[in-house]
Simulated scan of single mutants.
Amino acid sequence: MATKHQEMLTLEGAKIAIAASEKKAREIGVDMNIAIVDASTHLLHFSRMPNAKITSISIAMDKAFTAAGHRVGTHTYKEAVWPGGPAFGLGNTNGGRFTTFGGGLPITNSKGEVIGGIGASTGTPAQDQQVVQAGVDALEAVLSGKVKAKL
């Protein structure tokens, strides 16, 4: 096959994920930087909540980049990247953008294909992970038809 049709995450879809992520961030009491990238790892939408750390802006974008580009959550590397681990040094790849701690998840379509990534930063890796999971869950609910929204 010479070409492949690829579903794309829209700006409207990214806004749904951001809104749900911001809601979760407010619930846990931590303002966040939240980034959404498309399947090609390019920034699609970004939110900086009022008290989010300025130094976490690029971290959120890099988490989304890693999740979309490598097609798995950033938290999956936790054990593998320690000295002596099978992926030691992985965080130094891609110009230092490859992120190996929690807070980044791929966004997939109903076929399991990666159509984007979401990253959050300012809290602990566990808090960042909660925030991005809320965004993914909200978008999956819309894509599955459980929740009506215009994409």
Score class of each variant (00 low, 15 high):
Ala17Lys: 02
Thr76Asp: 06
Val136Arg: 02
Lys15Met: 15
Asn94Ile: 11
Ile57Thr: 14
Glu79Cys: 01
Lys15Ser: 13
Val136Cys: 11
Asn51Leu: 13
Thr93Leu: 09
Ile59Tyr: 06
Pro83Glu: 01
Gly103Ile: 05
Ala52Met: 05
Lys146His: 11
Lys53Glu: 12
Tyr77Trp: 14
Gly104Ile: 06
Asp137Pro: 06
Val132His: 02
Ser110Gly: 10
Ser56Ala: 14
His45Asn: 15
Thr66Gly: 04
Gly85Val: 05
Ile107Tyr: 01
Ala120Trp: 02
Met8Lys: 15
Ile59Trp: 02
Gly135Ser: 08
Lys23Pro: 08
Glu12Trp: 00
Met8Gly: 03
Lys15Asn: 15
Ile54Thr: 15
Ile16Gln: 05
Ile115Gln: 06
Met61Gly: 15
Glu140Ala: 15
Arg48Cys: 08
Lys78Asp: 11
Ile28Trp: 07
Leu11Lys: 07
Leu105Ser: 05
Val72Phe: 10
Glu22Thr: 10
Lys148Thr: 15
Ile16Leu: 03
Lys23Phe: 08
Gly84Lys: 08
His70Pro: 02
Glu113Asn: 14
Ala67Val: 05
Thr124Ser: 15
Lys150Val: 14
Met32Ile: 11
Ile115Cys: 04
Met1His: 13
Asn94Cys: 10
Pro83Gly: 01
Gln6Arg: 13
Ala80Glu: 12
Ala87Val: 00
Ala39Glu: 12
Val37Tyr: 00
Ser47Asp: 10
Met49Glu: 09
Pro50Leu: 12
Trp82His: 11
Asp31Val: 10
Gly69Glu: 03
Phe46His: 04
Leu9Pro: 02
Ala120Ile: 09
Pro83Ile: 06
Thr124Cys: 06
Ile118Lys: 01
Met1Gly: 14
Ile118Cys: 07
Gly95Arg: 08
Ala120Met: 11
Ala60Glu: 07
Asn33Thr: 07
Val136Pro: 00
Glu22Lys: 13
Ile59Met: 09
Leu151Gly: 13
Lys53Phe: 12
Arg26Trp: 05
Ala20Lys: 01
Gly73Ala: 13
Tyr77Val: 07
His45Tyr: 15
Phe98Lys: 00
Gln127Tyr: 03
Glu12Asp: 12
Leu105Lys: 10
Lys111Tyr: 07
Gln127Arg: 03
Phe65Arg: 08
Thr93Ala: 04
Ala138Glu: 04
Ile34Met: 03
Gly103Tyr: 03
Gly84Met: 07
Ile16Gly: 00
Gly84Glu: 03
Lys23Asn: 10
Arg26Met: 10
Met49Trp: 09
His75Thr: 05
Asn94Val: 09
Asn109Val: 05
Ile36Leu: 09
Leu90Phe: 06
Gly112Asp: 00
Ile107Gly: 00
Ser58Gln: 14
Glu79Asn: 12
Gln6Glu: 14
Ala68Glu: 01
Gly102Met: 02
Ser40Trp: 07
Ala35Ser: 13
Val136Ser: 03
Ser56Pro: 05
Phe98His: 06
Gly112Pro: 05
Ala67Tyr: 05
Val30Tyr: 07
Ile18Lys: 00
Ile115Glu: 06
Ala20Val: 06
Gln133Phe: 07
Ala19Lys: 08
Ala19Gly: 12
Gln127Glu: 13
Gly102Phe: 00
Arg97Ala: 11
Ala64Gln: 09
Val37Glu: 02
Gly73Gln: 03
Lys111His: 14
Gly73Ser: 13
Pro125Leu: 08
Trp82Val: 15
Glu7Asn: 14
Glu7Val: 08
Ser47Arg: 11
Arg71Gly: 03
Ser47Met: 08
Gln130Trp: 08
